[in-house]
Amino acid sequence: MEERKPLSEQEKVIEINGLYKSFGNYHVLRGVDLELYKRENLVVLGKSGTGKSVLIKIVVGLLTPDRGEVKVLNQHVDQITYKELLALRLKVGFSFQNSALYDSMTVRENLIFPLVRNQRKLTKSEITSAVEEMLDAVGLLHTINQMPSELSGGQRKRIGIARTLILRPEIMLYDEPTAGLDPITCLEINNLINEVQERFHTSSIIITHDLTCAKAVGNRVAMLLDGKFERQGTFEDVFNTSDDRVKPFYDYNFIQ
C-alpha cells in the first residue's frame, strides 16, 4: 500500500492550543496542541479511551474544554454564541462511529433532514437532485428508500458520510470510520475518504486505531499518548521509533 505524502503547510483551518479535558477524576486530554491545514487528511491515532473522540467532539462544540483554545475557521468554538456555533457547524461535517442515522427515517429522509433545515429556499426538485447526487457519490443510490435497519455496517457508514457531505462542509471529522468493518469494506471506506478529499476539497481529521486506514488516507499522522500529541508527522516519522508506547501499536497492526 502506498503511503500518502504530507501537503505543503498552508492555511490553518483548525488550531488547538493547550487543550485540557477531564471527566470527573479522569484527565483525558492534558495540553493538546494540534493544527489542521487546508485540504489535508490528518489521522489521529491512539489507544481506546485516550480521548481521540473527545477531541473532535470539542472541535465541533459537542463538549466544552476545561482549558485551552480551539479555533475552527478562525472562530473560537467555546467563545461564540449558539447561533454562531450552528453557522460554524454548517462548515464542519461529523461522521459518527456508529453512523448515528435517524432510525425512524428512510435514507432519503436522513439526507433531506439537515438539508431542508439549513437551506429553506430549495425547491423540491433541487432537494431531490442534491440527495440523489450525494447518494450516487457514495455509491448507494439504490438504497434511497430503505430504512437504516436494512443496511449493512459499511452502507450505514457511507450514508452517514453522505448525510454530512450534503451540507458541503469545508472540514470533515471522521470518528473511527473503519471500526467494526471487514477488510474489504475498510478499503472501500478508505477510498471514499480520499475521494471526498479530492472531490469536495475538504480538510479532514480521521480518528482511528486502524494503521492500514491511517496509512491509506493520512497526509499526516498524530499520535495521542498520555493526553498529548507527542509524535506527529508522516506515517514513517511517527512509527520509526523504539518508544515502547508506540511500537506495540505498529507490531499489533502489521506483524500480528
Binding site: 467532539k57 465541533v60 462544540g61 459537542l62 450552528l86 453557522a87 457547524r89 454548517l90 464542519v92 461535517g93 461529523f94 459518527f96 462511529q97 456508529n98 448515528a100 442515522l101 435517524y102 432510525d103 433532514f113 439537515p114 433545515r117 439549513n118 448525510r163 454530512t164 451540507l167
Partner: peptide
C-alpha cells in the same frame, strides 16, 4: 435511545436544533 445512539448529537452537528 436517540441520545445513546448519538442521533441527537448528529442533529446538533448538522446545524439543526
Amino acid at each position: 435511545s436517540m441520545r445513546v445512539t448519538e442521533q441527537i448529537d448528529a442533529m446538533e452537528v448538522s446545524a439543526t436544533n
